[in-house]
Design a protein around this nucleic acid. Structure first.
Lengths: 339, 339
DNA sequence: TTGAAAGCGCTAACAT
DNA sequence: ATGTTAGCGCTTTCAA
């Protein structure tokens, strides 16, 4: 089946067929270059005939970047993350950039991978990962390489950040539960800490304390549905007699908690305990859950990320910026709200 | 913040510092090259000192490929697809390849994107997308570029394929429902056809017919949860008095159907109607659903895809191959099975 | 507006 | 085992 394997046409071939120089070919494929319309047309025609495509590797070798962008993500198989990556990928492509996807869970893995990205003269990097080693981000800074961090702590002195407003989130969560009558609040958090998840939980606990409410912290191993379901089941049952409102660090955990509460423990939601999540993943709106939550607007987030990246590619002398994303409550059936 | 922007070190710089030639540097970074251990060590040391990294663009220009692999996927924010992409991405990285992620829904978009991938001298392409235009795959064939199609029709005469066995899936689904007592079978399919989804449905309907069972086809607009829930709600209610077993083309649709049946229509599952899905996405096992389904083994699928790709990168004269993946029933709570 | 010529950073023959 | 030399395919001064 490997018959007829064609060698790729080069700008040289096109130049010869069109009867022009290689420079002319290059100009024909460079937007805004100084070239006569008829020359451009001749070139375009010849290129089409030969099936010519600019070799991005060679071009990238010449220019300051290759048009590739490193997109680093962990937990890609998770609802929120996959939505973020899909949108980021599409947005980058729309900007004429190409995402190189790096999926890795541990800092070590991520480290060596990013290392290798640098060899591709990427135009920038986007981290949605929980764990970009800060040393690497500093490497990027040293190279003047644009970096955008999504929902990550500003670990180093380099990189723009787009973050959900954790303080606001915690406040909002507490207010929602209190307004709908909760008197004793629980907060479900994973033992493995993460910038956004831990930040939210702390803000929530703080807000509850300010209002003079008593609080309980319930733990799960990690951030998955199963972790949360197990975590609830392993929590001392007496806790559920005390609390009447539960804020979960993520929707995924909230769904696990919900199933544990209703199915495993036979506790009525929202009558006995109200449950509030965070993120507004698609599953939160599904009929079986109908979860009240606080939405992260992924569309807006994506737009901001790409804008920051684009701006910094254009002008690397910018100072580091941080953009806080607005949050909206989405009240469904796991909280009470009739007043 | 853009102070101290360093120029990247080149092999020339390393060569000079190490007191060797550029070839020596090249060899030091080429696994299995002919180089004396002590020379290699000198080079490695100098490279470390200068923060040198091989420029993959320049290397790719010289070799026959850049180490990049095109990973084309649609509906990335869907549970099965995100799992596939995560695993493929990780597996590629483990092979020393780097995935370029192309997410696009329409054939037109995909077309121009793949077009641009070709300019990066990719080592191969993997399509999980529903819609890779066949003309493009033929372009790849003309270039001798390895292509692996996942759950796609063999549209052209180029490309290896990894597919779930649709015929077996349909048979298995019918048998499961019949064995657990169903007499009249329904099949939920999206109007927008897709190779794997339509294939399964047809096989199922065929298998039911062979057993002399009457069947109903229920339609949804597309493959999402919401489409399925809506589709069920818009179906003539009389249908649900007739059927007592429903096979859904995908788990996502099954979950939408389940919520529609139980919550919107008040139909008992599995008592009145049994429901069977396909894929075994994570959500199928969640407590609220506990969906019986037929599993696609994504791990095995990924291994096969990467093996085929690797083999063909090594030897492009291979004939086109197709690997059928085994399927396993996962019986949970939406089917009866007490005999 | 166009072409000639000089690289971008690397690898692979070839010669030593 | 090592160095020399000649490209890979492109863009970009510089002259014309």
């Amino acid at each position: 089946m490997a018959k007829n394997v064609q060698r790729k046409a080069t700008s040289f071939d096109v130049a010869r067929l069109a009867g022009v120089s290689r420079s002319a070919v290059s100009r024909a494929f460079t937007p805004g270059a100084n070239i006569a319309p008829e020359t451009k047309e001749k070139v375009t025609k010849a290129a089409l005939e030969l099936g010519y495509r600019v070799n991005s590797l060679a071009r990238g070798l010449q220019k300051d970047h290759s048009g590739l962008v490193g997109l680093v993500a962990s937990r890609l198989d998770t609802p929120l993350r996959s939505r973020q990556v899909r949108q980021l990928s599409e947005a980058l492509i729309r900007e004429g950039l190409k995402p190189m996807l790096i999926t890795a869970e541990s800092p070590d893995e991520v480290g060596s991978l990013i290392e290798s990205l640098l060899g591709y003269s990427v135009a920038g990097m986007i981290f949605t990962s929980d764990t970009p080693p800060r040393a690497l981000i500093e490497d990027c800074g040293r190279l003047g390489l644009p970096v955008v961090l999504v929902n990550r702590a500003g670990a180093s002195n380099w990189g723009d950040r787009v973050v959900a407003d954790n303080a606001q989130a915690g406040q909002l969560a507490a207010r929602i539960l209190v307004d709908s009558g909760a008197k004793c609040l629980g907060c479900l958090v994973p033992r493995k800490k993460t910038y956004s998840v831990s930040g939210r939980a702390e803000a929530f606990l703080g807000a509850a304390a300010e209002r003079g409410l008593s609080t309980e912290i319930l733990y799960t191993q990690d951030q998955g549905y199963a972790d949360a379901r197990l975590g609830i089941n392993e929590t001392d049952r007496a806790v559920f007699d005390r609390i009447d409102g539960l804020f979960c660090s993520t929707d995924l955990m909230a769904l696990g908690a919900l199933d544990a509460l209703r199915i495993d423990l036979g506790i009525a939601v929202p009558d006995q305990i109200q449950v509030l999540g965070f993120d507004d993943i698609e599953q939160a709106s599904w009929g079986s859950f109908n979860l009240s939550t606080i939405r992260q607007d992924v569309d807006a987030q994506t737009k901001t990320v790409v804008r920051l990246l684009r701006e910094r590619i254009a002008d690397s002398s910018l100072t580091n910026r941080v953009e806080r994303q607005p949050l909206n409550a989405v009240l469904r059936g796991t909280t009470r709200h009739d007043g």
